[in-house]
């Protein structure tokens, strides 16, 4: 999860932790979120502050990979902001059109903000484990296609 860690450089430790949590919730599957919601000992009351809604995010690249930015094209994004009965506010946002997943992400973010960390930490740990395992397997599959050159003949006469 190096990319996620790098994303949240220069932040306070609380912001860093929240950025990491939001990155993991954005990668959670709908099933993971719904199962975690169903398993909550007490389901909080939820008020929608914004959304859930689906819209677009304009994706930017850089010329030559490292130069001036340009607009590459858009992606669908879904987001939601909620307030729980205890007043804590959470935000959820993810690529794609799954508004329900965005709403559940916002609820878990709000739960953690309200200090109810047990369920959220367990959920995030499970997501992190899955994401890291997938990334490790994919990296190993790519590594197996690495070309190891060996010299047959070096013509120098």
């Amino acid at each position: 999860m190096t990319a996620i860690e790098a994303a949240s450089a220069d932040l306070s430790s609380a912001q860093h932790e929240r950025a990491r949590r939001l990155a993991l919730l954005a990668r959670a599957s709908r099933d993971e979120l719904e199962a975690a919601w169903a398993a909550l000992p007490v389901q909080p009351s939820v008020t929608a502050l914004r959304g859930p809604e689906t819209g677009l995010v304009m994706l930017r690249g850089r010329m030559g990979g490292d130069g001036a930015p340009f607009n590459l094209g858009e992606a669908t994004v879904s987001r939601a902001s909620v307030r729980l009965g205890d007043g804590s506010v959470g935000h959820g946002q993810r690529l794609g059109g799954d508004r329900q997943a965005a709403r559940l992400s916002a609820i878990f973010d709000a739960l953690a903000e309200g200090g109810d960390r047990v369920a959220v930490d367990a959920l995030c740990a499970a997501i992190a484990a899955r994401v890291e395992a997938d990334a490790a397997r994919e990296a190993a599959e790519t590594a197996a296609t690495r070309v190891n050159f060996f010299t047959l003949v070096r013509g120098e006469d």
Partner: peptide, 14 residues
């Protein structure tokens, strides 16, 4: 101030 900035939107935005 989250109490005023996050509220006060339309109840039914569409």
């Amino acid at each position: 101030d989250a109490s005023t900035s996050l509220t006060g939107g339309f109840a039914d935005p569409v």
